[in-house]
Design a protein around this nucleic acid. Structure first.
Length: 590
RNA sequence: GCGGCGGUGGUCUAGUGGUAGGACCUGAGCCUUCCAAGCUCAUGGCCCGGGUUCAAAUCCCGGCCGCCGCACCA
């Protein structure tokens, strides 16, 4: 069984995740997180929130999953997500019609053509099926949109879509968000939420799904002035698989520090480099194996329409590299698009250090002259004069000035134009911020963390399966067991479990079967610590032990990875566990 | 979406044209003084629909789901 299969089996058996709605045959690409999985997901999201929101001083929002159509007209998803699909009736293969046309003709943007025209081109050019060489003339070109469509309210007059990425929920609200940031760049807005894509073919459990959780940060920066604090991450080692390496015969992953990557030009954007550094350490924190990890640069051909330089964080599972995060410098693409489509202001006002004085030519045409002179064209003439004043103020130097109007030249005496050059004070300018976007796929992170944490070893000759999850991420922090459920051990242990819960720990109580079995149960879900209450805890002799050595109100604390045990007082146990989880105390020093 | 292979309790699996057995897990009890021990008992299953047949979980067709390959992954 390979890594993925083993994981899928464990995930279902132990309650991490399983296919949704199995009672009705299920639906591909939809997964339910069970008790362990939901807890793990919460912990991963909390760790993300801690690093990318709280520690970074950014803000988090929660936008709707459903947005009205114009949002996606502006974002480009309505067209860009809409694939032209063509099926060969001979062999049944499905092809991208636009790709076929582009491959067989000089046309470069076939996607922008209407379907009928694409069909005509295929017929005229005698294009054949790439799979079976049958003629494709006359085959219908259909649309397949990866967005889930719905209707807002009754009827179909107001279509809406489930968002295919969480990012637009931030971009579209930029004017308001900038206000909350007091219009000061740079600022970051984060969101953890669901996104939906009606994938043609979901695969590989949590890797290709139709509903998934994204954790995205949109960092709005002034492209002219803002610089990332590179010095805070300059020594972080990045395993970089550059576009150049990918295209070279002997290319491989290079270990470069953030500083080296920037100085050598391997990473062109300082902001992207900064986030790769931040993210690398964060991946390690949540338990991703850094020996099975790399940053891969997008090749020129795979860059998204908005991105200039883009790197993916990838993790290796079963020999495949899985994209777990995309880092993109999106420029001002998204904000510009929303500004154009909505007519709203998606800029921030950037104040100059010193106000500057500019000479600005203006006109104030004498309408009482233009009106009688030009009749219905008077306003158009005034507008043309204004445009001319801006583009060519020298034209107003003579007695008369001429402008073009519908191909005809009209002449106006300068004195009737109200032309003047005014000195204006400008305090700043409106700029459209650029966006740096790290976009994490939470489900893929969880899949990777579990795959990389999976361990098999042997304890006392018995096989053992356990998850070496970082204690911070583990669904349960501590298991509490009575050695046996009798003689008051159970009551004592139950009280201890309650006390640990009150102290904020995630605690499982288990008194069933043999103690070893209970340890193994917790091992399989990655519980880092187990506490066992025994007779000594009650102040009673343990077997033949010398009663002088008794340590009442102590318990044994067992460490998952080593299975080592230590006897510790219950007084201060909750605090000790917290220190272990936080890494402020090692088990050996306990 | 296309092609190939597959689908038996929660998990892993045996098996047959006459409606199923095991192991593990889970629960109850006994036993048990720290790593899946043992004993007894119990819960729980042939993916869905149609067809062929006296009889279908088994054969055929379709669907759904999974794996692999292709395509797709803005």
């Amino acid at each position: 069984m390979n890594e993925g299969d083993r994981l899928t089996e464990l995930a279902k058996r132990r309650g991490f995740y399983f296919p949704a709605a199995g009672a009705y045959g299920g639906a591909a690409g939809f997964w339910t997180y069970g008790p362990q999985g939901a807890a793990l997901k919460d912990n991963v999201e909390d760790a993300w929130r801690d690093r990318f929101v709280v520690q970074a001083g950014h803000q988090e929002i929660s936008a709707p999953d459903v947005m009205p159509e114009p949002v996606f007209e502006a974002s480009g998803h309505l067209d860009g997500f809409d694939d032209m699909i063509l099926e060969c009736s001979e062999c049944g293969a499905t092809h991208r019609a636009d790709h076929i046309v582009e491959d067989n003709t000089d046309i470069e943007e076939a996607e922008s053509l209407p379907n009928e025209e694409v069909m005509d081109i295929i017929a005229q050019q005698g294009i054949e099926c790439p799979s079976c060489q049958a003629s494709l003339a006359g085959e219908p070109v259909d649309n397949f949109n990866l967005m889930f469509e719905t209707n807002i309210g009754p009827g179909t007059s107001s279509p809406g879509y489930l968002r295919p990425e969480t990012a637009q929920g931030i971009f579209v609200e930029f004017p308001q968000l900038a206000e909350y940031a007091r219009n000061q760049l740079p600022f970051g807005v984060a969101q953890i939420g669901k996104a939906y894509r009606n994938e043609i073919s979901p695969r590989k459990s949590l890797v290709r799904v139709r509903e998934f959780t994204q954790a995205e940060l949109e960092h709005f920066v002034d492209p002219e002035e803002d610089e990332p604090p590179l010095e805070t991450v300059e020594d972080v080692e990045l395993p970089l698989y550059s576009g150049e390496s990918q295209q070279a015969d002997d290319g491989g992953v290079e270990q470069l520090t953030v500083r080296e990557a920037v100085d050598s030009g391997v990473i062109t954007s300082d902001w992207v480099a900064y986030y790769l550094g931040i993210a690398r350490d964060w991946y390690e924190r949540i338990g991703i194996d850094m020996d099975r990890f790399r940053f891969r640069q997008h090749l020129p051909g795979e860059l998204a329409h908005y991105a200039s330089d883009c790197w993916d964080a990838e993790a290796e599972i079963d020999g495949d590299w899985i994209e777990i995060t995309g880092f993109a410098y999106r420029g001002d693409y998204d904000l510009q698009k929303h500004a154009e489509h909505s007519g709203q202001d998606y800029t921030v006002f950037k104040q100059y250090d010193e106000p500057i004085t500019v000479e600005r030519p203006t006109v104030d045409p004498e309408m009482s002259y233009l009106g009688p002179e030009f009749g219905g064209d008077a306003q158009a003439v005034a507008d043309a004069l204004e445009a001319l004043a801006e583009s060519d103020p020298d034209a107003f130097e003579g007695e008369e000035v001429s402008v073009e109007l519908d191909g005809e030249t009209v002449t106006v005496p300068v004195e009737q134009t109200g032309f003047s050059v005014e000195e204006m004070t400008e305090n700043g300018e409106h700029i459209t911020p650029h966006v740096v976007e790290p976009s994490f796929g939470v489900g893929r992170l969880i899949y990777t963390v579990l795959a990389h944490a999976y361990r098999e070893d042997e304890v006392d000759g018995e096989e053992r399966t356990y998850l070496e999850l970082p204690p911070e991420q583990a669904p349960t922090t501590v298991g509490v067991f009575p050695l046996m459920d009798r003689d008051g051990l159970g009551e004592y242990a139950r009280e201890l479990a309650e006390a640990l819960r009150r102290a904020g720990h995630s605690v499982t109580y288990d008194d069933s079967g043999a103690i070893g079995r209970r340890y193994r149960r917790q091992d399989e879900i990655g519980t880092p610590y187990c506490v066992t209450v025994d007779y000594e805890s009650l102040g009673e002799p343990e077997g033949d032990a010398d009663s002088d050595d008794l340590q009442a109100d102590t318990v044994t604390l067992r460490e998952r990875d080593s299975t080592a045990q230590k006897r510790v007082p219950i007084d201060g146990l909750a605090e000790a566990v917290q220190q272990l989880v936080d890494g402020d105390l090692s088990f050996d020093d306990l």
